[in-house]
Write a protein that binds this DNA or RNA. Sequence first.
DNA 1: ACGGAGTGATCAGGTTTTCATCCATAGGCT
DNA 2: AGCCTATGGATGAAAACCTGATCACTCCGT
Lengths: 197, 197
Amino acid sequence: MALRRQSLSTGDIARHCQVTPATVVNWIKAGKLKVYTTPGGQYRMELEEFVRFLDTHGLPVPEELQAGRQRRVLVIDSDARVLAQAAEKLPGLLPRVVVETTGEGYDGLMLVGSFRPHVVVLDLMMPGIDGAEVCRRLRTNHDTRNMFVVAVSGLAPDNELARRVKRIGVDAFLSRPLDMTELARQLARLLRLTPPA
Amino acid sequence: MALRRQSLSTGDIARHCQVTPATVVNWIKAGKLKVYTTPGGQYRMELEEFVRFLDTHGLPVPEELQAGRQRRVLVIDSDARVLAQAAEKLPGLLPRVVVETTGEGYDGLMLVGSFRPHVVVLDLMMPGIDGAEVCRRLRTNHDTRNMFVVAVSGLAPDNELARRVKRIGVDAFLSRPLDMTELARQLARLLRLTPPA
DNA sequence: ACGGAGTGATCAGGTTTTCATCCATAGGCT
DNA sequence: AGCCTATGGATGAAAACCTGATCACTCCGT
């Protein structure tokens, strides 16, 4: 079952419940499953509805469907290679981690609001964005003060901006070139996950 | 997908119905979707027709498009009086309107993500923020391109920044001092609500 | 033990949807 | 106006799905 999909076919449901698709159709016809149909006549069930169904029947809810268990990491960086690497490698290095990336500062801030990451990995030198100020707002703002912030910069650690950011207080400070294994280690520490081997 | 849209492409429809664009074309060819075509031969469907379609087939209708639901307005402005006035007066002038305000640019962007406003009222001269660039991102970004944007500025209408913003294409452009009644009128127009008396 | 109801599995045939590809269109940008 | 990229449309083959009928198994009450 794809993580992106929000609705399930009978086949998806069947796999989860360990029955045949035909049985799922029986359930539907008996009114036990709330579904809708495509114009072509195929059944679809909303993910949310399915989780509710599993819950009320005491069936185990698969881990990947449990919203509470996933750890969301947002990577905001002007270097496209960093984004690609993060998206590709982090989910493999860390269990239950969902990664979202953007190379656009303003988009990144909007994603902080909509994606609600547990950790924000922030390039301090985004064009048009004051990295230190973003850190400060993340710490001040009620909705975000509990997010972990990992600052990334190519500057010397005693640079003015770097010092400012450290004074504000971030949860980790990484230098370029950014090593994915090191990033993963830091994320594991913050999120209390088992670190990569 | 929001009120702002007048017509949808097959891709838009596909995303909403969680199928592939090719499937949507199937539906069209089977006569299940009432569409028209552009001169170049691309399918377009009117928003209203689409909602009707979702309704008759029992497909979930996105919250944005449900009739009678609340309309969310986010006001981002550096002038605290504007914020106070907007919060106080707009809900009285317009039915079903929920107002959120902030005087902080970065917070405003985060709110765009979390509050998911139908309309963003944006001060173009926020300190530390490039108003025109924010407009551009709002228009480009997939998650926000359907939000209405109302630009507010104290500049002359033929100012460079103002021209840039207009070229990007906002839904309304208001000058300072900001008149709440005028703002309410514009919001009513965009949100298709009964205008204030 | 027997029969009936309820539930799930199996199978075949026809339909719907997806996938991958290539080309055309639309829309932003200069 | 012209370029460029993202998006949309057509196509054919493969995968997934629906229907309806049939069969097997379990749970009951008699």
